[in-house]
């Protein structure tokens, strides 16, 4: 499969999602340029996590379309893709979860090489080499043979980031990556993320960490009650929020 890289990595058009009677997402339109970092902010329950999961189709949107480098995700020739067909797209998007979601029966190294070896079929020896490089990059080279339960939260999350990078993804999705961490440990994860961002990784980050959004984001999307309320560069968003909802939100978060 030829990998098409275009200027627009991810495009979301008119996405909506209902859970029963509740409209969780509506009229979601945005695009993410290749090599940029987009932060999605908003109060709890605004649908941020659901939106993220609509991008890699862990949740199937009821309305709208999602495109990865110009290719439509989720639907082919008018019919929904099967789980197996979706796998081809998901493996091109790495995901980092709030609760790390590491696999406890595998060592750190095995966690990182699992997807490249078993989903992409890459040779094990090469993958191990690359995995060691990635673990070194996130500062955990010496932990490669331990099991996840021995690690701290921050260490687990850094392993999770290495794992997400191992498949050479086009896009990295982050779902509140630091929300489960102790305040002192948040910094070590954020610095890894900032490093990735400045290296030109395409990232979509759902977060409450305003400092990260301010420093590393190229664009901020503010959501409330399932809709995008405001989209702006971080400078503009944090100093001169255009909408009242955004102003109220920032007042509560930024002292």
């Amino acid at each position: 499969m030829a990998r098409a890289t275009s200027d627009v990595a991810v495009e979301v058009r008119g996405v909506g999602k209902r859970f029963g009677n509740l409209q969780v997402l509506a009229d979601i339109d945005f695009s993410v340029a290749t090599g940029t970092t987009v932060c999605i902010l908003g109060p709890s329950g605004s649908g941020k996590s659901t939106l993220l999961r609509c991008i890699n189709f862990l949740v199937r949107p009821d309305d709208g379309e999602v495109y990865l480098h110009g290719e439509r995700v989720g639907m082919k020739n008018g019919t929904w893709m099967t789980e197996r067909e979706l796998c081809r797209y998901r493996v091109r998007m790495g995901m980092v979860f709030q609760h790390f979601n590491l696999w406890p029966h595998l060592t750190v190294l095995e966690n990182v090489i699992e997807a490249p070896v078993h989903v992409l079929g890459r040779p094990r020896a090469d993958t191990i080499e690359k995995a060691r490089t990635l673990l070194d990059k996130v500062g955990l080279a010496e932990k490669q043979d331990v099991y996840p339960h021995t690690l701290s939260g921050g260490q687990k999350q850094r392993v999770a980031i290495a794992r997400a990078l191992a498949t050479n993804p086009d896009v990295l999705l982050f779902d509140e990556p630091t929300s489960s961490l102790d305040p002192e440990i948040i910094g070590e994860v954020l610095s890894v993320m900032e490093g990735l961002s400045s290296e030109g990784m395409t990232m979509i980050v759902v977060t409450h960490e305003m400092s990260f959004a301010r420093e590393a984001a190229d664009s901020v999307i503010f959501m409330d009650a399932g809709r995008i309320v405001e989209t702006a560069p971080p400078e503009a968003f944090f100093t001169r929020p255009a909408t009242r909802r955004a102003q109220q939100f920032l007042q509560r978060y930024v002292r």
Binding site: E83, C87, Y89, M95, A115, H118, V119
Partner: peptide, 9 residues
């Protein structure tokens, strides 16, 4: 969820 997200069938 992680396994799904990484494209595992």
């Amino acid at each position: 969820e992680a396994a799904r997200a990484y494209g595992m069938s």
